[in-house]
Design a protein around this nucleic acid. Structure first.
Length: 265
DNA sequence: CACTCTGTTAGGTG
DNA sequence: CCACCTAACAGAGT
């Protein structure tokens, strides 16, 4: 479930469970998850004896700094997660990388479908890591202003759904939260951005921040979202929580988007 | 059983 | 440069 709010929650989870513990060993159970620059041996060498010092999030990426000034980068794809396992506890089924601590606990990176990445960089200058360098604006940053939002959309001829999801423009929003943002803004996801009024743009901008913040407050638990959100209703048999109209499913830019034909114009 | 769908993104094509 | 398609993978649903 890893869009921006999910990764923010994972960051807190890692910080709560796994900082300042001596790393005794690293096990790579499926090296296909490793980035091109990273090998199992290299990862183990860098991390053995080190500790995780701090975790930050950038878009859908989780970055962990070590006390040796390396940076561990994780992306969760569609099915990735972190699982902190107590001594003797059960490891997750799709365990791919284990960071084993000296006290017998372990932090497991799991990922069923293997879309995702674990990579190590010998730097703390994370902005220069290629995956990070190409990202667009962070939607919850104060620097993400309405003016910048409009500037970004100005250059585009596609739909609002696609633009919201384009990581090089606005970083961190995926298919699910893009649907929620357009729903809350009352704008159809298949609208061309060039057709949007200033008022609609303002709503989209405000709802982008609001929806993402709200999701973090809800621990990014999709089922735990209140009923007035489209998220818990989103699906082939879903209905709009406001008008009770059947939701429409439409493929936009190769992704399935759901919207309410009555509430979204 | 076969086929379709899925919270992502890189890379290729026209 | 831009829009569109596909592949990488594994399981659930129809």
């Amino acid at each position: 479930m890893p869009e921006l709010p999910d990764v923010e929650v994972k960051k807190k989870y890692l910080a709560k469970t796994s900082l300042k513990k001596k790393i005794a060993d690293v096990r790579v159970l499926d090296k296909r998850i490793l980035g091109d620059n990273t090998t199992p041996a290299g990862l183990a060498k860098a991390l053995k004896g080190a500790t995780f010092k701090e975790a930050i999030r950038r878009a859908k990426y989780l970055l962990v700094f070590t006390d040796r000034d390396d940076t561990l980068l994780m992306h969760f794809g569609m099915t990735g997660d972190l699982d902190f396992v107590k001594k003797g506890g059960d490891k997750p089924k799709y365990d791919r990388v284990e960071y084993r601590f000296a006290d017998g606990t372990a932090l497991c990176y799991e990922n069923m479908r293997l879309f995702g990445k674990v990579a190590l960089f010998h730097t703390t200058d994370f902005a220069k890591i290629p995956d990070i360098a190409k990202l667009g604006l962070e939607p919850l940053d104060r620097s993400f202003t309405f003016k910048k939002f409009k500037d970004i959309l100005d250059k585009r001829s596609t739909t609002i759904h696609q633009v919201l999801m384009e990581q090089e423009l606005i970083a961190g929003i995926g298919n699910i939260f893009s649907d929620e943002i357009t729903y809350q803004a009352g704008v159809r996801p298949d609208r061309k951005v060039s057709s949007l009024s200033d008022e609609e743009l303002r709503k989209l901008f405000d709802k982008t921040k609001w929806v993402l913040r709200r999701a973090i407050e809800l621990d990014a638990d999709l089922d735990g979202h209140p009923k007035q959100f489209i998220i818990p209703n989103r699906g082939p048999k879903g209905t709009c929580p406001k008008s009770n109209t059947a939701l429409v499913k439409k493929t936009i830019g190769g992704r399935s988007s759901y919207y309410c034909p009555d509430c979204q114009k």
